[in-house]
């Protein structure tokens, strides 16, 4: 029983992190209508940049976000404006191919500079946990990453609801031409959205790096999580992403609890496939 409760808690906490992994992807799909196959690789790139920052400056991974987030925002902005914007009108394949290309380039660049060795962003906080009872302990880092994920989502939600810039992004997602007619400079709006998307991925990347080991090729497993969260939550839905992260985290952890650790991945895939087949519009849309 304790083990089950432990799994449940872990699943819920994973949910916040998963939401942070998926929110950027959901954003880009909802707004720019493109599938970023390099989303997971950008996330891992964030982990590595944080690794460099923490080891050279000797600061904590949390503090490294001050550098990692703006850097990744700029990368996203540039990638969108110099590459993806150029081929948006030409259908789905070119953007898929470009993000695929980016994925290969990022993975191999990381491989080249950091080798295939496992890395992590462990710090003193990584090992701490809160003991609730004999069998139930909550790792502090899970709790923190969950809170960070939820905060990221809430901030984004407020940004889209309350600020002119956020509203302009939403308006552009609804009708690009009319947004343009209302005075929105649409040339940069997609770049902005991609910058935000990649920045959130990087935040998730830093959290992930504090919990798990990462490798240059880890990106694809996070891409799967991002996909799952996006599909379950519904494309472009900010709060749907949060619930979706929660459900997917629970599904994976419960799969592992009942069918063994190696079932965690498979449960995830099956949940995702079933969703794609029966409710591709997401759980929460009408």
């Amino acid at each position: 029983m304790d083990a089950l409760i432990q799994s449940l808690i872990q699943g819920v906490l994973l949910g916040g992190l998963y939401a942070a992994i998926g929110i950027g992807m959901s954003l880009i799909f909802g707004i720019v209508k493109l599938t970023n196959l390099a989303h997971g690789d950008f996330l891992v790139l964030g982990s590595y940049i944080s690794l460099v920052v923490t080891s050279t400056l000797g600061i904590s991974p949390f503090l490294s976000l001050i550098i990692v987030v703006p850097v990744m925002f700029c990368i996203g902005f540039v990638v969108q404006n110099t590459m993806l914007n150029k081929v948006l009108s030409k259908g789905a394949e070119p953007t898929l191919m470009i993000t695929f290309g980016l994925s290969i380039v990022i993975q191999n660049l990381l491989l080249y500079f950091f080798t295939a060795d496992a890395r992590n962003l462990h710090s003193s906080i990584t090992l701490k946990s809160i003991t609730i009872s004999d069998g139930i302990r909550i790792p502090v880092i899970y709790l923190i990453s969950c809170v960070v994920g939820v905060v990221v989502i809430l901030i984004l939600g407020a940004y889209f609801k309350k600020t002119y810039q956020g509203k302009a992004i939403m308006a552009a997602a609804d009708d690009l031409e009319v947004a343009q007619l209302m005075g929105v400079n649409i040339k940069n709006i997609y770049g902005l959205a991609m910058g935000i998307s990649i920045a959130t991925a990087a935040i998730a990347g830093v959290m992930v790096g504090m919990i798990y080991n990462f490798y240059p090729t880890s990106g694809s497993s996070y891409l799967v999580i991002a996909f799952a969260v996006v599909v379950i939550g519904g494309m472009g839905s900010t709060y749907g992403t949060l619930v979706a992260g929660l459900l997917f985290g629970l599904a994976q952890v419960l799969g592992a609890h009942f069918f063994g650790a190696q079932a965690q991945l498979l449960t995830g895939y099956i949940v995702l496939l079933v969703m794609l087949i029966f409710r591709p519009q997401g759980l929460f849309s009408k």
Binding site: A168, D174, D175, M182
Partner: peptide
């Protein structure tokens, strides 16, 4: 009547005052 369909009426109007 091309509006921003997923945004509220108020937000649509606010988008008019973007400049």
């Amino acid at each position: 009547g091309r509006v921003f369909p997923r945004m509220s009426v108020l937000d649509n109007l606010i988008m008019g005052s973007y400049t």
